[in-house]
Design a binder for these strands. Sequence first.
DNA 1: CGGCATCCGGGAAGATACTG
DNA 2: CAGTATCTTCCCGGATGCCG
Lengths: 233, 233
Amino acid sequence: MKLQNITTSKNGSSRRLYDDACGTAHALDLIGERWALLIIRELMLGPKRFGDLRADLPRISANVLTQRLDGLEAQGILMRRRLPPPGSTQVYELTEWGYEAEPIIQTLGRWATRSPAHDPTLPLSATSLMMSFRTMRDPAQLGGIDAAIGFRVGKEEFRMRIADGRVTVARGDPEGADLILSGPAVAIAAAVYGGVPIEMLEADGALGVEGDRALLARFVTLFPLPEKAAPPA
Amino acid sequence: MKLQNITTSKNGSSRRLYDDACGTAHALDLIGERWALLIIRELMLGPKRFGDLRADLPRISANVLTQRLDGLEAQGILMRRRLPPPGSTQVYELTEWGYEAEPIIQTLGRWATRSPAHDPTLPLSATSLMMSFRTMRDPAQLGGIDAAIGFRVGKEEFRMRIADGRVTVARGDPEGADLILSGPAVAIAAAVYGGVPIEMLEADGALGVEGDRALLARFVTLFPLPEKAAPPA
DNA sequence: CGGCATCCGGGAAGATACTG
DNA sequence: CAGTATCTTCCCGGATGCCG
């Protein structure tokens, strides 16, 4: 290790800061570097290991991930935690303040889906699909629904609860839910956001459905995308 | 101009994109580059010229500002507009969709002021001070207030209206407001966010006050900063 | 395999000087 | 005043390798 690296890593403030009292500028100092906010997004539904993050952010390189995790930890946004042995692997978990960044993710997401350039058919991580449901829920449509919906997306399992006009999502066993959807995140996104008919996705083997199909028909209407903004002239 | 520049500017997608369907990731593709969101912030209260932006973002370099303005225009977030002659100078103005980014600025700002590292004594542009009032207003304290407050910050003038529990701010003539504050943005920020006594700022010649001093005493309590998050252990 | 450190190439950001 | 040209610095991304 070179001396330069010692000074620059010890004094993390050698990073380019905006030097601006505005809270927005400070937010960018904290989480404005490339990948930082997407790492936070991936941790939003609970702790993950280094390798999980690499898998869910396929285009990040290991050294950048290391740098970001260091920086976010130093700023108190996430913590390293060592799981009890055996298998005492390390996980990264948001702090309480880190979890409070969820509105940032939602506000950005809601605004950007109005972009004419937004392409909802791109790949998608399981976490961002689940987060998108919390972001895009239509309160007017949720009234009167009380249901549990399970998801199996790759190796990850989630349980959503819709009740009292609210949507909560957490990692958890889908078993026993009123409706269970299985398949890659893009397939579920195609059904909910792309308007692709369920039957077509099932026929392709892309989507598995168990349980209340009437609920499913309603489910795919609960998360409307906002209208596109006018494209640039 | 070189051929390379033509291809890279025509095909703006040579930029590093996240390639992720998640709206949050797309937002970062749109406004995640350095300085982009601060440029949007500076335009939030109306159009500005190139030189205004340089003055209000003192540490941005001219070529980066040019690149960002080009990119934001290509994405439909802002427009170039030529003012009617004489003095037919060019200004940059947010599109309707661009103005809708205000919640992003507010959400980031609110979250980041909880950072242990946030330093509210740093320099501040007039626009970000005005935006901060919209962000930080305490609805519980605004009830029953109906007032017009004017600001003279450097060469810029603003008029704030507090009524019906809402705060609106626009560029405009402070004359005739119930209260008029004059001085650099840092001085006004010191009074509102730093708890520095008005008398001290006036004695220093940093702050000028005209009009209703009782309203001023109340005004400085209307924008409480959120509690700090626990500092990293 | 998870968690890094290191080296390298390309490109974005910063600073300064220059032009219409 | 509104940008452009150029140069330097530094960040990002990819590959490789070390170590528990």
